[in-house]
Design a protein around this nucleic acid. Structure first.
Lengths: 246, 246
DNA sequence: GAGTGGTCTAGACCACCAA
DNA sequence: TGGTGGTCTAGACCACTCT
């Protein structure tokens, strides 16, 4: 960088990566840096903002600029571990998976394509907050066609449209009991910066992107039985897939 | 937001999402916004910086602040499409996949664990730049144990350690010809903000995270045959996995 | 209360692009 | 050449945390 703030940011970045400021420690205070580099306060602030939006540090009012430490949870997908269950996989005894919203909706054109149904068909929309280490780490939106929800109600006496009811087991097992056999998932993964609301809900520091996962689960006839959109805090989770070749 | 810049950012964000400023169009110029909101120039700049680091806009000197448009490429993984070949999957006739660096290295402890070899063993490190739409969209670092490189040299007369030589076919085919059968891949996917060098190489605008993919390929005996670390521009690609259950 | 970072101002100069 | 965004200053006041 040829700018002053770029130079300061480089110095600090290098010092962090060399271990001079280990995770959890604090950078020198802004007034210290302004006099050390003989610049205006906002110039130092610009440098620190850059580091914050790279995800290296978190400025805290009244405390200082702390170097970030991250330890993501790994979610695994493989033929051997078909149902991906948050609470089991996080290895955090205090992990939670809470249904925060359930409502009947009419499928829009995008959903209709994902679920292979008609626009306007009734679908059940379930929103879950999956937490770990005291904060929401993933927001899970899930949609199910009405007929499958009815089947599950009849076969297992579980009402998925009532968010107060805790299902006795995972969705895949319920679907099998209802005569549908989920046999393949397709997941598409991307990343982007979070919206302000997402930052709020997940408590994301500046500079942490979200992992986006779009899932379609199909039965043994290739019909979609469920689709999900998941938004996860990338400083707290990763996704792992094991795929056989040939 | 209760701050002035937060209010301005919210207004602009909403206007963008409502279609008032469609992708490719420009936001009002900074002087216009300063007088419209009756604030100082830097206050408007703070608001626009926030939108830029969310990935919504790209400020261009001498031009204006343009609303971003993105069209990611999808990379697919499934048992039916085992070898993931950049140029075939990008659907861009001008896509390229260039080896930019090849060197022998000694495995560090991390690599030794991934490749199931001893620290200090010779491994071949290949770096590729995978481009699409005129820019590098993914940086691919790959490591192979020396014995497999030798096997390939003998079986197919291909020297992977020479970056000038264009292999006649993909690595998996070469491995099979050399008597090793890659039969399973495990990929772990995460995301973070790019380093300054990564932003430079891939031409990333502010506010675009990178997708990180760690891969280990194993043969039919479960031995690692290859490991890779891929860093991809999330505004230009996604990853898709199809996994059979049971 | 002392110290931290966050916001905001008014004005200046610079780098870049397009007509 | 005129308009765009980028950098930088010096100083002010605010919100927060810790002791």
């Amino acid at each position: 960088m040829h700018t002053k703030w770029g130079r300061i940011a480089s110095d600090l970045r290098e010092a962090i990566q060399s271990g001079e400021y280990p995770p959890g420690s604090k950078l020198p205070a802004i007034p210290v840096l302004t006099s050390r580099y003989d610049v205006a306060r906002d110039t130092v602030r610009d440098a620190i903002s850059a580091l914050a939006s790279e995800g290296l540090v978190t400025p805290l009012r009244g405390v200082g600029t702390v170097v970030r430490e991250t330890m993501p949870v790994a979610l695994a997908y493989s033929p051997q571990a078909p149902a991906r269950i948050w609470v089991q996989q996080t290895a955090d005894p205090k992990a939670t998976d809470i249904v925060v919203e359930v409502e009947w909706e009419q499928a829009d054109s995008d959903l209709a394509e994902r679920l292979h149904c008609a626009s306007g068909d009734q679908v059940l929309h379930r929103v879950r907050h999956q937490s770990k280490g005291g904060g929401v780490a993933q927001i899970h939106h899930q949609w199910l066609p009405k007929n499958l929800v009815d089947d599950i109600q009849q076969a297992s006496n579980v009402d998925l449209s009532n968010k107060e009811v805790e299902p006795p087991t995972d969705l895949f097992t319920l679907l099998r009991q209802a005569g549908t056999d989920p046999s393949e998932v397709t997941e598409t993964i991307g990343a982007r910066m979070p919206h302000p609301e997402e930052r709020e809900v997940m408590g994301l520091p500046a500079g942490v992107p979200v992992l986006l996962t779009y899932r379609i689960t199909r039965d043994n006839a290739g019909r979609p039985v469920e689709t999900s959109t998941m938004t996860g805090a990338s400083d707290r989770m990763t996704q792992t897939f094991t795929v056989p070749l040939h």
